[in-house]
Design a protein around this nucleic acid. Structure first.
Lengths: 198, 198
DNA sequence: AGCCGAGTATGACTGAAGTCATATAGCCAC
DNA sequence: GTGGCTATATGACTTCAGTCATACTCGGCT
């Protein structure tokens, strides 16, 4: 989980560091994409809200990660909103300065290719799970993927609540809770004082 | 829907044109990504199969479109299989030659950024739909998106069967058929001798 | 210690999409 | 024109996750 663009470089190209309070929006679904964003500290989620208030979380972003670039690269309105899960500080760079940076740093440009590809992998995986697999399978696939990207070898404590897991897999909290309990019984994962470990 | 890499350029960098019969696989889920592929004629789908034989279609690719690049960019095994829907001819370029081409043609490299971004847009949209919206809404969103990318203004005849729509939205044929009929009755779309138009 | 709120847990009931069976329509080959 | 295949269509029944209600657990705060 290293930095996609080094902080000095972001600043060199005119990036500003902005502070956001927990639960505030950085941008809203439907608005124009005018800036590049990169998390310095805290946590941000990209999320869709359905009319009845139900959330779908497209992804979480922590220190060093960028978010909201696809609308810049391909010029379409934000398909989801960016909300801070915690008090966060975020680098903000205008679209033009971002492209300027890319044109001068081929290795960074290439990194974005890789980054977008990995996101496609994630979305494709979840899509396949949601479309054709039962809850336990969905959840286990997500958890295994998280483990493999954070800590492939050591035991891994899932840093998300049941509600967040539900919002990432298109399930309800109750279903996640029930599925997780069942998988604990069958030994597919462990629960240590309410935290899921795997 | 233009060509992502001009044919002459593909050939110049050592690309070979390969013929595939309808329903044959170009590569299988789980195998290593060693080549870049670009459709010259015919149609290819990227698809996941669940144990019980249920299909999920990640995308369709026609003349001029490339497929299967994310595993090359980010180095992971194919997360789905590429199957020809029709007799097809496909350009095939080794991974190394593909990267060579990219390094020498910045404008092409940039195009891939854009391409990956648009695919993320599509997958994010479908993901949101599948996770939190009822069948009619899911289908209509997909159809509207297809229309907007193929023929935003003129009336558009959907080039897919009910089964294919089902496999793209995580629904069953019967559900798609029922939903489409219902939407015809409510005037949200039209059916002209079994073809959906919008 | 006691309170509060967020997160986890569990049961009873419901309903919408899936499943299965069967029918019909259109199209191509011979 | 007939036969066979693929796609569309429709009804009856079932099932699994969603909904709703309610309770419990834990950690932080005063």
């Amino acid at each position: 989980m290293d930095m996609i663009i080094p902080e000095e470089m972001v600043l060199e190209f005119g990036g500003k560091l902005i502070q956001y309070k927990k639960n505030t929006a950085i941008f809203d679904q439907g608005s124009q994409a005018l800036h590049y964003y990169q998390v310095k500290s805290g946590e941000v989620k990209m999320v869709n809200y359905s009319p009845d208030g139900q959330e779908f979380i497209q992804g979480f972003f922590q220190a060093g990660q960028s978010f909201g670039e696809p609308p810049i690269f391909a010029d379409f309105p934000y398909p989801a909103s960016a909300i801070c899960c915690q008090d966060s500080s975020v680098f903000k760079l205008t679209r033009d300065h971002f492209f300027d940076l890319l044109s001068k740093h081929f290795e960074i440009h290439k990194k974005f290719n890789e980054l977008l590809s990995r996101r496609l992998q994630y979305k494709g995986m979840i899509l396949n799970e949601i479309s054709s697999h039962p809850p336990e399978h969905r959840i286990l696939t997500l958890l295994t993927f998280l483990k493999s990207s954070f800590s492939p070898d050591a035991e891994f404590e899932i840093p998300y609540t049941r509600q967040q897991i539900a919002d990432m897999t298109g399930l309800r909290v109750e279903t996640v809770i029930r599925s997780v309990r069942k998988m604990e019984q069958s030994g597919e994962l462990a629960i240590k004082n309410h935290k899921i470990t795997i």
